[in-house]
Simulated assay, not measured.
Amino acid sequence: MTTIFEAIGILRKVFDKFAGKEGDAKTLTKKELTELLKEQLGGAPPKQAEMDKFFKMLDDDGDGVVNFNEYVVLCAKNANKDLTFL
Score class of each variant (00 low, 15 high):
33 L>V: 04
29 T>C: 00
39 E>L: 11
25 A>F: 07
2 T>K: 05
36 L>W: 03
2 T>H: 07
4 I>S: 08
52 D>V: 12
8 I>S: 03
40 Q>I: 09
1 M>C: 08
52 D>R: 02
6 E>Y: 10
70 E>F: 01
38 K>Q: 13
45 P>Y: 10
85 F>C: 14
10 I>E: 12
68 F>V: 02
66 V>T: 03
28 L>I: 00
73 V>I: 15
4 I>Q: 01
73 V>Y: 12
31 K>C: 02
30 K>D: 00
27 T>I: 00
48 Q>P: 08
12 R>S: 04
78 N>H: 15
47 K>C: 08
25 A>M: 11
37 L>M: 10
73 V>P: 09
80 N>D: 14
84 T>R: 11
31 K>P: 02
17 K>T: 15
75 C>G: 11
4 I>H: 07
81 K>I: 07
85 F>D: 12
57 M>E: 02
84 T>V: 05
85 F>Y: 13
26 K>R: 12
86 L>S: 15
60 D>K: 14
10 I>P: 01
59 D>E: 10
27 T>K: 05
80 N>C: 14
72 V>Y: 00
5 F>D: 04
52 D>I: 14
9 G>N: 02
27 T>L: 01
33 L>A: 03
64 G>A: 02
56 K>M: 05
74 L>K: 13
61 D>M: 12
23 G>D: 04
44 A>S: 15
43 G>E: 05
42 G>M: 09
85 F>E: 13
46 P>R: 14
49 A>V: 14
48 Q>G: 09
20 G>I: 13
15 F>W: 03
22 E>D: 12
81 K>D: 01
56 K>D: 06
10 I>N: 11
14 V>A: 10
59 D>F: 08
9 G>D: 06
62 G>K: 09
73 V>D: 14
63 D>M: 06
35 E>A: 12
10 I>S: 11
80 N>H: 14
15 F>E: 04
71 Y>F: 14
34 T>V: 05
63 D>P: 04
64 G>Y: 04
26 K>F: 06
30 K>A: 10
29 T>A: 02
8 I>N: 07
61 D>G: 10
69 N>Q: 15
1 M>F: 00
47 K>L: 13
80 N>M: 15
61 D>W: 05
67 N>K: 01
6 E>W: 07
15 F>G: 03
49 A>L: 12
83 L>M: 14
36 L>E: 05
20 G>R: 08
40 Q>N: 09
81 K>C: 13
